[in-house]
Structure formats: structure tokens, C-alpha cells
Design a protein around this nucleic acid. Sequence first.
DNA 1: CGTTCCTTTGAACATAGTCAATAAACGTGG
DNA 2: CCACGTTTATTGACTATGTTCAAAGGAACG
Lengths: 241, 241
Amino acid sequence: MTKADALPLSSPLRTRLRALAPLSGAEMQALAAAERDQRRWPARREMIAEGAPITQARAIVSGWACRQRILPDGRRQILDFLLPGDLIGVSPLSNPLAPATILAVTEVVTCALPAAAAGMPGLSHAYTVSAALTELYTLAQVTRLGRLSAQERLADWLLETRDRLALAGQTVGDNLPVPLTQELLADALGLTSVHVNRTLQSMRRDGLLAGRSGMFLLADRQRLEILAGYRSARVTADTEP
Amino acid sequence: MTKADALPLSSPLRTRLRALAPLSGAEMQALAAAERDQRRWPARREMIAEGAPITQARAIVSGWACRQRILPDGRRQILDFLLPGDLIGVSPLSNPLAPATILAVTEVVTCALPAAAAGMPGLSHAYTVSAALTELYTLAQVTRLGRLSAQERLADWLLETRDRLALAGQTVGDNLPVPLTQELLADALGLTSVHVNRTLQSMRRDGLLAGRSGMFLLADRQRLEILAGYRSARVTADTEP
DNA sequence: CGTTCCTTTGAACATAGTCAATAAACGTGG
DNA sequence: CCACGTTTATTGACTATGTTCAAAGGAACG
């Protein structure tokens, strides 16, 4: 054990940003320092309201959140999930408004994000790559909802989520922690919770996956990839993902 | 009539960008000059391939294009349409890759886009606002596909498209030019062309809209807005849209 | 332990898809 | 301007995927 208040040597945020762009020692230091400025959100708490001004850029240290929209009659669409290491509220606009509500799914800890200052080109690049990845994931979500069957949606989402968790060092092999209820999964995939339940069962029967909400195991990743037509995200022609 | 090669006093591109951010005379001049650098694409021509490097930023002068993804088995999802005045290939990344194929729907004319240089803060701001709007439209597309019925999807899409066309001065009242086949509409809305056909018919019967592909008339915009739960996009807390 | 939330199951139903055929519109060359 | 070929729109009958409603088990938690 090191000192009581020492930061761990790595964190999802630093692991992820280092995977998106090469970071200098000073940049890693700045991140580690910013991570000390934490804020806790209980599960189910609204972190940002749709349409509200975005005041500061932060990152997820631990826990899952989601971006969602509620229709006038109460239907909900979850746009995407925010995982450890993901960024929140990074915008090039001067007075940006939140395009969607952000809701803590589990207990969430966020931290401050160092400003992409002049001396830190790596950080700035990492933020840009992160935003571009988010856009890719959103486009994948459009395709998922528009053209995939329930089984394909689940396969595709699990594969994408595995990749995203892996970027932040949150996976062990093909095991992924997924702290979601079937209802949350349903609202993200444009289905009902009843149908998610039945679809998961049939996928387990088919040997495609094992485990349940909480912790999934992609038992046959290759078959899942073929089923969903999955390809992992690539944002730039540089060497990084 | 003015000189044969004189540019028209306004254009969809300049109308739209001026609506997104205040532009100086010099900026309007730069736009008008760039618009002379045109390129024509016949209908159905692939303008950019998914995954290909993006080489230059351009804008749509006239015609409609779409961004689409094709699944391994041939299914297609249209992510969004690119309308006159929309920007293409604007990215903060150094070596960006196209996240989707861009296909000319009708004959399309594009033009060069002035670099957002130091002396042109308005242009740079307009590009940023444009990108933020695109993100909003993509999130709206997710909600549309995930949680709306066929009729709601059509209503919502028509209202959004009306707003977008109006930004570029392409509407006359609630009439909007829509040069799409029902199959294209279906691939954008996650439906089949047969179902789009039947849904349009029922909406005409209900007095919600009139006209057909080519030119639609939103006969009862208020009822359409209630039906779809529609709200127009707002990106910043500043006065602009 | 009791309450609450979550998962699971069944039966009936609805929305949208599939397949196939016809009609209408459009573009082209003569 | 008209005939022809092609694309697009329309229609019908049937099917399938996913939804709704309701209820019963389980698991988690104070």
C-alpha cells in the first residue's frame, strides 16, 4: 500500500486517453492532478438536464451514466452510455446547451478535465479523437436501431461496449461488466424489456453469450461479430484507433 | 441581368451560414469566391467512400446527398441527408476518415469552403455551430428510429427537414422540395418502402400533409408537431439558433 | 423478514415486413 | 410528339417480429 491519498498508478481515464493519443509526462501529471477534483452522483440522479447550459468539462472516473431523451408521453430513448474514462461536456462552442439529459445509472464519480492548453497538444488531440469516436458510436447506434433485428442489436451493442470498455482497461478477456437492468438495455436498443429478456435467453441457448446483467461473457465473439456485421471503430488514418 | 458569370446575390450556403453566425463582409466575400470553385456529381454517384481519408472540406451548393452505411447482407441505413448549404468533410482531426459513405441522391454541385482562418471568426463559429447542429440531428435520428412509430417518424423527419431547408432559404411556407423516392425515405427511417407508401397515404387521408415525393406540403404543421413531439433544434445559449 | 425492484413466463395482439403483381410516372431515342 | 423500357408507386394477402398486459418467481436490501 502507498500513502492513503495517493492516486492509483493508472485509472480508466488515463488508460483511455493514452490509448487515443500519445501523452507526455506533464500531460499525465495534469490528468492525475485533475482526477483529484472529484464529485459523486448517486444512482438515478440527473447530472445534466437537456437544454441546460454546459458549464464545465468533466470525465467519468467510475460508474455508468447515460444520455437520454424523454418523449412527451413518457417513452424514453437512451442515446448512449457514458463509461469510465469517457468525457462529458467537451464542446468547441462558447455557450453550449446540453443536447440530452445525462442520468447516473449507477453511482458515478466524475472528475475535472484539464483544459486543452497550449503546452499540451497530446491532451487536446485526445479530446478531439474522443469526440470523433463518440460520433462514430452514435452513427453505429443509428444503424443498429434502423436496420438490425433484436438479436443483432444486442450482439452489436455488446461488441461495441466490449471495445469501449477495453479501451479504458475495464475488460478481462471477453468478460464485461454491464451494470444495467434489462429495461435500460431495452431503452437503449429501441426494444421492450420483455423482448430483451427473451432475446438474451435465446442467445445464451445458442451459445453466443453467458452471464447476465452485471457481468456478461461473450462466449463466441466471432459468431457474434458475424451475426451483427460488426467492425470496430477507426477514426483517423494515423496509427491510433 | 447582371454579368454572365456573376454569382447570384444569395445562395443556400451563404443564407445558411449567415443564419448560424454573424458574418462580416469579408467573410461573405470569401464564401462567394469559394463558391466559384464548383464540382458536379451525377445522381447515384458515390462522393466519398466509408473509411476513405477525407481530403478537403466542401459544401453542398445544390442537390441532395446522403450519408449511408451498407450491411454485409445488403441492408442499407441512411444516416442523414445533406441539403443545400450543408458542409462536408469539416473535421478537427488531422487525418480524418469518412465515417460513412456519401452518395449523391440527385445531381449534386459542391463548392470549396474557405479555411476558417484567423481573420474570420464568424466563419469559424458558423462551422462549429453547423457541426453541433449535425450532432443534434443525429441524436434526433436515434430517437426517431428507436422510439417513434412509422407515422411519427415521417412527421418528425418532415418537420426537421422543413427547418433545415428553411435555414437555407429552400422552403416556401410549409412547402418543401423533397427529391427522394419512397425507398430512400424508407432506408432513412428504418422502414420498408411499402410501409412508407401506406403511411404517407394514411397521413394524407388524415389531412396532415399533401403532395408527394418531389414536393410535400405540411398541411397541418401544428398537428404534425404534436404527433411527433417535435421541438426545433437549439445548440447554444446565444441568440442564434 | 418484508418490501421493492428485477427477471421471467404466457397468451393475445399490433405494427411493420415479405412477396408478388399491377399501375403510373419518367426518361430516352426515334 | 410518341413508343418503349425502366424506375417508382400502389395494392393485396400473408407472415413475422416485437409489444402489451398480467402475473409469478427471485434477488437485493434495509
